[in-house]
Every structure is written in C-alpha cells, then in structure tokens.
Amino acid sequence: MARDRSPAELVGAVPDATFEITFDGRPIVALPGQSLAAVLWAAGILAWRTTRVGGRPRGAFCGIGHCFDCLATVNGEPNRRACLVPARPGDAVTTQEGHGHAELGDR
C-alpha cells in the first residue's frame, strides 16, 4: 500500500527552490509552477472568497477555470481565478469578500 505517498513523490518531482506568498497576511510556502489555488490547497486552505449574497465561503471547485468559484483578490486586484494564476514570489492573496469592490459600495 502506498498510503504515505505524496503526489510529488509519485511523479518524482525535483522542483526549483520554494518561495513564500501570503494569504491574509500569513506566510505560506509555494513551489514554482503551482497555481495559487494549488499553493492554498497544499497549506490546507480550501476557501478564499465569501459570496456576494450569503457571505458563504468558497474555494476551488472545477479546477480548470470554468466555474469562477476560486476568485481571489491577488495583490489588491479582485476576481482573479486562483486555479489559473501561477503563484509568484511575494504574492499577497487576500480573501475576496463579495464582488471584491467594496470601495464601489454594495451592488
């Protein structure tokens, strides 16, 4: 049984040097080539958005850029699809509340 195996071990990954990004100010480790959603999942984080109407938590769902559930605010810019955007050193991901444009007032 390969119970203790990780995905990285399975594919024999020898990644380039790790770097840090932050999620709501907290540092987390990223591998080059991972999407922001992958970095967050690896850190055990499944939600990085709250919905406009119910304020409910959401994260990655379809994983291929179709569902837009994984929208996050990245370096101050809201509505980025975390499952598509690659992580870069120093990226600041923050939980996106609603449409992400609180400065424009309620919809």
């Binding site: 990780s6 995905p7 990285a8 594919v11 990954a13 907290r26 540092p27 987390i28 591998l31 991972q34 999407s35 959603a37 992958a38 970095v39 999942w41 690896a42 850190a43 055990g44 984080i45 499944l46 939600a47 938590p57 959401r58 994260g59 990655a60 769902f61 379809c62 994983g63 291929i64 569902c67 499952c83």
Partner: peptide
C-alpha cells in the same frame, strides 16, 4: 469548501501536485 469537481481534483493533482482536503487545519499549515 472541500466539495470539488472530480475532474477538478484530477486537474489540481495533475498540474499542481496537490490533493483536496488533506486534513491540515489552517493553524497547522504554517
């Protein structure tokens, strides 16, 4: 959160080498 598409889980694994809901609490993820 934690409910993901089956294809989505597969895509995240194939491209990002990650699994959904690996049981790490946010506090333990530092």
């Amino acid at each position: 959160p934690g409910v993901v598409g089956a294809g989505g889980a597969q895509a995240m694994l194939k491209s990002g080498l990650v699994l959904p809901g690996n049981g790490v609490s946010p506090a333990g993820a530092k």
